[in-house]
Write a protein that binds this DNA or RNA. Structure first.
Length: 596
RNA sequence: GCCCCCGUAGCUUAAUGGACAGAGCAUCUGACUUCGGAUCAGACGGUUGCGUGUUCGAAUCACGCCGGGGGCGCCA
């Protein structure tokens, strides 16, 4: 937001370096001044001093020298831009402390600029202009005929939020899902259905029913291993596209898909393109033949599978990519059989600049194998495939959720429990709300409370699910942020006249106001950082900090009861805060209720 | 055996190689007849697993340990 000022100062600093024979830095890193109360940006000269020392070969005290340079630059800047009070100066004052240069802005001018900008751009505030980049994000990837539990939830929430972040940062995003609609698990399910549940239909809770039948199938088969021959026979019928089997598969697959759609709708997630494993199986098998022909893959059939010896091809002495199996010895397909043609299809269909896979960290080696194989095959875009890895959601005691062991927390149950808890709290806090509003608010709060903790930690850190903390709405959590939004709204609702037009503050700003304005101005930077690092964490932290700053302001600074000129500016500030909170929550995929 | 990830306050966790390691929970103390107390202020709590290096400067980078998790030719 303050690029022109920053650039003007940078230019002056570079001039100073040239004039004083100091090596010109390639760039200066600016950060907001960490100790607030006043408003500005800061950079340090340690690198500069260190470079200078290296060049001269002399021993110097870098800290001392950095401070010296800082002081000289302050003097130089004052000479360049004139007295601090003149309007020409890009900053109000500057000082050098411990090797840092601090630039303080004119509070009135800049606070007006921030608030005006938010209220002009509204729901687009903080968003970057289009970069022209086209990126596909593949996430969720559920298996049909299985349960959907909170382990899967992290993937959906992370993937969706990463999409929102990339869009806000100016990329064109294609949201892709990749459905595991074939494989042994499906055949097991069909076998169990035919044998014990023929003709049955799922109830309302389709996903649960599908999952229960899968667990049952698994139980039958592990208790009676001799039944495996029946399953294998069914698999063979599927492989030959026996019409009866295919019809049943299509019908039951749709049951799962309907259930997934319900879940996605509840979570506020949609997809632009849904791929199915079944649609890339045939082209995958053709591709395997092609790879054998080209000498990239080795066919060890019938004694072994078809493999790609990646390390050998690359001439690596130490094992790194190892060996990837791309087709079973009996000719049936594996994940790898299908992931290679899928990657090609994606790039050909959409002319992507980048392809991101949101998949748990355990598949890290596998995905590196896929990407490397694509590179060996000669696809120049192979290097633009990226595995966005995240850790699992485990149960206390480091127990992995498993559909076959029944150690799962179903998404439906979590949402229901959380909403129920939220209803009780809303009833207690705000009994005057109409019943319908109460329900929808409770849902917003519950959804936020579930999503926030999954986004607010490093992707690569394990999450332990326990009911108590999942249903805890206190502290650094979404409801705190939503509450700040509600409070801002509450002030604006009571406003008697329309918001005044663009306005500079006429009073001397309170520290809480400066802190709040400062945070509002940082949204765009945080979005960009989250987009570059693919880490929603930066935005969850930002939204919380912003909410905290607003609650602090709320405590310190009366709005409606303030004198007219103070009130008019503060009302605009409240409106700007509400908008910024709302934009942040939107990107995170967390609802921003008007009341709660 | 080889490779990857994690280790920060009692618990959950943050910190583009840079200023005093910042929050929340829990515990304790306080907040005006006030725009919504799902709030705010304060206290307590840290040899950033251990060690050695690199650097003017290390929670952050390198190497070695310790502890936990994960992955390694026909599972997905």
């Amino acid at each position: 937001m303050f690029q022109p000022e920053q650039q003007a100062v940078e230019k002056a600093i570079f001039e100073f370096c040239v004039q004083n024979n100091i090596p010109v830095p390639s760039e200066l890193k600016w950060v907001p001044i960490p100790f607030s109360g006043e408003w500005g940006i800061s950079t340090s000269f340690f690198q500069l001093a260190a470079n200078e020392a290296k060049q001269s070969g002399k021993q110097v005290n870098v800290g001392q020298r950095a401070q010296e340079i800082g002081e000289q630059i302050v003097a130089y800047l004052l000479k360049q831009f004139g007295a601090s009070q003149t309007t020409k100066s890009p900053f109000r004052r500057a000082d050098a402390v411990k090797g840092y240069l601090n630039l303080y802005f004119s509070t009135a001018e800049y606070s007006q600029r921030v608030v005006d900008t938010v209220l002009e751009e509204n729901q687009h505030y903080g968003y970057c202009p289009p970069t022209g980049e086209r990126v596909m994000v593949e996430f969720s990837q559920p298996n049909t005929h299985k349960a959907f539990h909170v382990g899967h939830l992290r993937n959906v929430i992370l993937g969706n939020t990463v999409c929102n972040i990339l869009e806000a940062a100016g990329s064109q995003v294609i949201r892709a899902n990749y459905i595991g609609d074939i494989g042994l698990h499906v055949i097991k399910w069909l076998w169990n259905y035919q044998k014990f549940h023929a003709g049955e239909e799922p109830g309302d809770d389709r996903t649960r029913w599908m999952g229960d039948l899968y667990a049952e199938a698994d139980r039958h088969l592990s208790e009676n291993p001799e039944l495996d021959t029946e399953v294998r026979a069914l698999f063979a019928r599927w492989d030959q596209r026996d019409p009866e089997v295919v019809a049943l598969w299509q019908k039951t697959r749709q049951w799962s898909m309907d259930g997934f759609e319900q879940i996605y709708a509840k979570l506020g997630v949609h997809f632009d393109h849904v791929y199915y494993e079944s649609e890339v199986e045939d082209s995958g098998k053709e591709l395997v033949d092609d790879l054998i022909q080209r000498g990239i893959a080795v066919d060890e059939r019938p004694v072994g599978p078809v493999i790609v010896r990646i390390d050998d091809i690359l001439g690596l002495k130490k094992e790194k990519y190892r060996v990837m199996v791309i087709l079973r010895s009996d000719g049936t397909s594996l994940y790898a059989t299908k992931d290679i043609p899928l990657a090609i299809k994606k790039f050909e269909q959409y002319h992507l600049d980048r392809s991101i896979y949101v998949i748990d960290v355990r598949q890290s080696l596998y995905l590196q194998q896929i990407y490397k194989t694509l590179e060996i095959m000669g696809y120049p875009w192979a290097s633009q495939c990226y595995h966005l890895a995240y850790e699992l959601v485990n149960l206390p005691g480091n127990v992995t959720m498993s559909s076959r062991d029944g150690t799962v927390v179903l998404l439906e149950d979590l949402l229901r429990e959380a909403t129920q808890r939220a209803v009780e709290i809303v009833k207690e806090k705000n009994p005057s709300l109409p019943a319908e509003t109460m329900q929808s608010v409770a849902y917003d709060v519950a959804l936020g409370a579930i999503k926030y903790p999954m986004l607010a930690r490093e992707n690569i850190r394990l999450v332990t699910f326990d009911w108590e903390s999942a249903l805890d709405f206190n502290g650094q959590a979404a409801p705190y942020i939503q509450y700040a939004h509600v409070r801002a709204n509450s002030i604006l609702r009571r406003m008697e006249t329309p918001l005044s037009p663009a306005l500079a503050p006429l009073h001397s700003l309170d520290a809480a106001e400066i802190e709040l304005i400062d945070l509002i101005s940082r949204l765009s930077g945080e979005i960009q950082r989250a987009a570059v690092e693919l880490k929603p964490l930066h935005l969850t932290n930002y939204a919380y900090d912003l909410a905290r700053a607003f609650n602090d302001f709320y405590q310190q600074c009366p709005v409606l009861k303030a004198d007219a000129e103070v009130r008019d500016f503060r009302l605009r500030l409240v409106a700007a805060t509400k908008q910024t909170l709302s934009n942040s929550l939107n990107i995170l995929g967390i609802p921003a209720p008007e009341v709660m």
